[in-house]
């Protein structure tokens, strides 16, 4: 961009400052208990102010409220964004204008919500939004670009303000990626550390990949052994086959690795030594219950599951 081109670009760009993205309009749905409950389920939010009518009735508020962080949710476009794309408005026009001039990168950097009043089921949330500011041209770590900020103001059916949201976005010219391959490792989502597969154990893990947990059995004296070894410790035979475990088991002991956090693992994985019905012990995870529910002697039922993109593992559930 020459200085002249930049000036022409910026003249048009800054004309967006102060432009309304949308005039005050109501949400399609009034604030309602159903959508609130769907939200609290996912967030794991047990706040009774949102969902416990009985508690709320005797609370200071006297009523349930919508989670303040849902303020922006009520006016969302909905499924049309996925099926037919976002409808055109001055903000999408501005974004398109950025894109046409090479500022194709987009990064939300800050979002600030301030709440002046709590909404309750039955209230209707109205929103109006304006492009509040556009920064001067800036060089950032991501590339050269402009920050723009939208200001959304929320009010209820009585035109009382509920709150505001300021959303700051960087539109930038993506920097040329040096050596495309360099970052691919960094972008890998980590998975569990796999067991190495050698001659004596590879067959066992290969069976797990096919959904089966096997137990090695001496062909000569029929003794079961786990983990697999090349020779029977009872009769020294090197001939063996295997049986498939029913994965009925019982907790012999258990713990949970709380610290450090290991990339690729769920937090606080519950690990247990499990006595299988066949008589051999195996170490695995206990899943499908809380740590506090696990106890020595607990009956488990296992199944082989895919636990991440690359890993099949036996996992045990309360029986």
């Amino acid at each position: 961009m020459t200085p002249e081109e930049q000036k022409a670009f910026e003249d048009k760009l800054y004309a967006y400052v102060g432009v309304k993205v949308c005039s005050r309009k109501p949400a399609k749905d009034a604030v309602n208990e159903t959508m609130i409950r769907h939200w609290t389920e996912v967030m794991g939010d047990n706040n009774p102010a949102y969902t416990d009518m009985e508690w709320a009735a005797s609370s200071r508020r006297g009523r349930t409220i919508a989670p303040p962080a849902m303020m922006y949710v009520w006016n969302q476009e909905g499924y049309s964004v996925a099926s037919s794309g976002r409808a055109s408005d001055p903000q999408t026009d501005m974004v398109e204008f950025f894109n046409e001039h090479g500022f194709t990168g987009v990064l939300g950097t800050n979002v600030k919500q301030e709440y002046s009043r709590e909404a309750s089921p039955g209230d209707t949330v109205y929103v109006e939004m304006v492009i509040d500011s556009i920064s001067e041209r800036k060089a950032t770590a991501r590339g050269t670009g402009y920050f723009f900020e939208t200001l959304a103001t929320f009010s209820d059916q009585n035109n009382e303000t509920l709150g505001t949201q300021r959303f700051r976005v960087l539109k930038f010219i993506p920097q040329e990626q040096p050596a495309a391959a360099a970052d691919t490792n960094e972008l890998q989502v980590p998975t569990r550390i796999p067991s190495p597969r050698g001659h004596d154990n590879g067959w066992w893990w290969n069976a797990v990949d096919e959904g089966k947990v096997l137990i090695q059995r001496c062909k000569s004296c029929q003794t079961l052994r786990h983990p697999p070894r090349p020779m029977c410790g009872e009769c020294q035979s090197m001939e063996w086959d295997s049986i498939e475990s029913t994965l009925d088991g019982e907790v012999m002991s258990y713990t949970s690795l709380r610290h450090p956090k290991i990339p690729g693992y769920p937090s606080d994985p519950i690990c247990a030594v499990i006595k299988l019905a066949e008589g051999t012990n195996i170490v695995s995870n206990v899943v499908g219950c809380e740590f506090a529910d696990v106890h020595i002697g607990m009956k488990l039922k296992g199944k082989v599951e895919q636990v991440d993109e690359k890993t099949m593992l036996p996992q045990f559930y309360p029986a």
């Binding site: 796999p194 067991s195 190495p196 713990t255 290991i262 769920p266 994985p269 170490v283 995870n285």
Partner: peptide, 13 residues
């Protein structure tokens, strides 16, 4: 291979 019986489950310290 020995640690491999424990690593995938997170039993690794």
């Amino acid at each position: 291979i020995h640690w491999g019986w424990y690593m995938p489950y997170g039993l690794l310290t």
